[in-house]
Structures are given as structure tokens and as C-alpha cells.
Simulated assay, not measured.
Amino acid sequence: MENYSTNERRADIIQILNQKERVMISELCERYGLSEVTIRKDLEILKKRNLLFRIRGGAIRIPSTVDGNDARVEAKRLFYYKQKRAIGRVAASLINENETIIIDSGTTTMEIAKNLHKFHNLTVVTNAIDIALEVSKYDRFNVILLGGHLRESSLSIVGPLAESVLKVCYCDKLFLGVDSFSIEKGISTPNLEEANINQTMISMAKESIAVFDSSKFDKRSFAFIAQVKDIDAIVTDEDIPPKIISELTSRNIKVHIASYQ
């Protein structure tokens, strides 16, 4: 039986509901070796976050959050929790002292913001309110939060005003959160405004690094961001199919693998 922290356990419950429509309390008690009282508390907390529906003896998934397609940030945070934490650590290791970096909005990019402890001097440009607040906790970085229209579902700033500010910011590295990734179709996102600001981020960064868990491979969303050739490196988890690694490296794209086991 695998040991889970409270957050990991609740994330795992959401993952189970991502794979099937319902889960029973008895099943979860056996999986985690915990009492019904603890599992019921987990389900009630996830219900309050609008991440599942409670039923007698268990829970069922909420269809609008199952595939993560432009889901609210609260829901996305629990998808592939372990993988995102590992990806964040590896991505942060690619940063150098004194660099100016762009951190795109997203739950995977948030994990980068949580792993900047070793640095003393960074300039961090972001379009995400929650990431700006997280980076400000270090109390030693220059943090630039873009202004513009707030997308409440993602806590991100988008629109012409944000794009105009970005166009005067030359940056060393961009850490781009990705919703969908296809070698043939490129990188895409459900929201057109997010795609526009992501395109501007890529144009202003010396190096563009896409960070995303392996579930995003071979997917396509509504709004096109960029071709794969426009990305310099990828940070993903160890479940990436070997054939995709070979294809990416053949295109001179660096692939960094994060182990989450």
C-alpha cells in the first residue's frame, strides 16, 4: 500500500474519478488503509471545492472538470499532482541566477514558483495573480505582474494591455504551461486570449520551455499557440512515450524528464 500525504490522497481520488464515473468509500478505505471518517472528510472537502458530487456511500465525478479542458484552477491543481510537483522541481533547476524569466499561468508553472529557494536575484514576469503572490513570498525578487483582463477560471491576466507590456520585456527564459501538445498540430489551449498572450511570451523570450505532464501529449485544443519547432525544450514526467522523446530529440528539442515515483 502506497503512502499518501493528505493532498496527494485527495488528488488521487480526483484521478480515480477521472478514469471512472464513481468511487465508493469502502474502496477508498481499502486503497489508503484509512477509516471511513477520514475518507468521508476528504470527499466533503472535495465536494466543497466543486470537484465531485457526493452520493450515498461514495462520490461521482463532475463531467465539466473531468477532462481538465479549461477547468477552473482549483480543479486543475489536483490533476496529476505528483507529476506536476516533480516537473516544477526539474524546471526550476534550469534557471540561472540573475536571469529574467516569464512564468506563464497554470498549476504546473505554479510548482516552478514554489522551487526558487536557492536564488537570490531574479526578475519574474508573470500573467498569473497566484504565481505573483507565491513569488513575492521570497521577498527578494523583482516581480512584474502584467495588467489587463482577469480570467477568473485560471487567475490569469490576458488581453491587449498585457500583451503590450510584454512586448517591451526581453527575457532569458519562458516557462510555458501547456494544455495540449501535438507534434503534428503544435501547442494549443482552450482559450483564444490565452493563446494570444502565450504567442507574445514566446516572441519575447530567448529560450522557450514548455512544462506539462504527459497526459497532454497527442491532444489538441481550440486555440493554436505555436508549432513544436518554436519551443526549445520540454519538461515532462517519466510517462512520456519513448517514440515521442525520439521524435522531439530528432528535432533538436531538449527533453527533461521528471521522476515522480
Rank of each mutant, 00 (worst) to 15 (best):
T108A: 03
T249D: 03
S221Q: 01
F79C: 10
D12Y: 13
V23A: 00
L145S: 09
P190W: 09
I234S: 00
V23F: 03
N191C: 12
I244H: 08
D213L: 10
S246V: 14
K216G: 06
G58A: 12
A233W: 04
N96K: 07
K167L: 10
Y32P: 02
D12E: 11
N96W: 09
D179A: 14
I183S: 12
I60V: 14
I225Y: 01
R89D: 02
H256W: 11
N98H: 06
I16S: 05
I183R: 15
E193N: 13
K137S: 13
I16P: 06
R72H: 15
K243T: 11
G177I: 01
K185L: 10
E21G: 07
T236K: 00
I257P: 12
E74Q: 10
S64C: 06
R49W: 14
L192I: 07
V135K: 01
N7Y: 12
C169K: 06
S208D: 02
R40M: 03
K137V: 08
I102Q: 03
I55T: 11
S156D: 07
A205R: 15
D213V: 08
I39W: 00
A195M: 03
H117S: 14
E111S: 09
K254T: 13
S246A: 14
Y32M: 00
L166P: 01
R9G: 12
G33C: 12
I45E: 12
F217I: 12
P160Y: 06
N115L: 00
D67P: 03
A162S: 01
F222M: 01
E152V: 13
S180G: 11
S250M: 14
V124R: 03
P241D: 05
I103V: 06
A113H: 01
T107Y: 05
L46V: 03
E194M: 13
T65K: 07
K20M: 07
T200I: 11
I14A: 02
K47L: 08
H120A: 09
S203G: 15
R251G: 06
K185P: 05
N98I: 10
A233P: 08
S215Q: 07
E30L: 10
T38Y: 09
N7Q: 10
N3Y: 15
S26C: 02
N115M: 04
T123Q: 04
R85H: 08
I131F: 01
V37E: 13
T100N: 08
S156H: 02
I157R: 00
A128L: 04
S64R: 15
K173Y: 02
I209T: 02
D67V: 11
